[in-house]
């Protein structure tokens, strides 16, 4: 294999990994905060994708504005869901949380199918994103490169917010030890609503950005649920950099396997995840006991 194809495989995998990161990072933080098993996270990504695609098609919003709209719309909707549906089950058993969020998946899938239709939606990328960029060694799709840059910037921004701001410190404290944080006067409930909205909004952006790579149709939530969960489980709960590296790892691995073992290459990802979680139930980058 020559250097060029190696680089292009790496870049393609990283672009897919960035999408996985943007969608999954919120899930990691909210699961880490409340221990809430949120299987409906993918459905928020789907909603966002639809909001972005439809607002571009019907209102003629430019792509960046549509992304912002998707973020705000889904963040708002998710807060409503969080207050009405999630909040009563914070102390409930895992099973009830699983049921609630599976039900939410079904309901949202059906709502989208009824409202928009079962067909696959495509994102009309603006001209400046759809061409190729000369990287010196090779030409590569501009959009993938933009995804990689955007994902990295987002990771750094989140990391900064997480490590250097007061709210970030509170979130970290609550993830590590919720009861202790509460007794120190941190309002974990409000913190959770906030991070939930942020995480769902990011998932929405990820759904829109990733529609090019992952596709966008009503079956999206169930098709990619396992992937998002694997990223979170491998990255460790509530670890932003962990989720970032896990997402890139899985994105690249998946990209390579799809090329060399087009039939059932994902077998290896499942097998690796299985082995990893057995050895380290807290994930590759997670802290022990969190």
């Amino acid at each position: 294999m020559d250097l060029n194809s190696l680089i292009s495989i790496l870049l393609g995998g990283m672009a897919a990994g960035m999408v996985l990161f943007i969608v999954s990072v919120g899930l990691s933080v909210t699961m880490g905060l409340m221990g809430f098993v949120n299987l409906a996270h993918g459905a928020f990504a789907m909603l966002g994708g639809y909001a972005i695609v439809l607002s571009m098609r019907h209102w003629g919003l430019p792509f960046p504005a549509a992304l912002a709209f998707g973020f705000v719309a889904v963040a708002t909707v998710s807060v409503v869901f969080e207050r009405l549906l999630y909040a009563p089950l914070y102390r409930a058993r895992e099973l009830d949380q699983v049921l609630l969020t599976i039900g939410l998946n079904f309901a949202l899938i059906a709502a989208v199918t009824l409202g928009v239709g079962p067909e696959t939606q495509t994102v009309q990328l603006p001209g400046w994103l759809s061409g190729q960029t000369d990287l010196g060694l090779l030409q590569y799709r501009t959009y993938s490169l933009v995804l990689i840059v955007a994902g990295t910037v987002l990771m750094l921004a989140l990391l900064f917010g997480f490590e250097r701001t007061r709210i970030g410190a509170r979130i970290r404290a609550a993830v590590d030890n919720r009861r202790m944080a509460q007794s120190m006067g941190v309002d974990v409930g409000r913190l959770f609503t906030l991070t939930f909205a942020l995480g769902s909004g990011l998932a929405a952006v990820g759904g829109g950005l990733g529609a090019e790579i992952l596709g966008l149709d009503p079956q999206y939530p169930f098709r990619y649920l396992v992937y998002f969960l694997i990223v979170v489980a491998v990255g460790g709960l509530g670890r932003i950099s962990g989720v970032f590296f896990a997402a890139i790892l899985i994105g690249v691995l998946d990209f390579v396997l799809k090329i060399y073992f087009p039939k059932g290459g994902t077998l290896f990802i499942y097998a690796l995840t299985l082995i990893l979680l057995l050895a380290r139930p807290q994930g590759l980058f997670g802290k022990k006991g969190s």
Partner: peptide, 8 residues
């Protein structure tokens, strides 16, 4: 979906 949510 709605039934599941209500049951949960």
């Amino acid at each position: 979906g709605v039934t599941l949510i209500v049951v949960a």
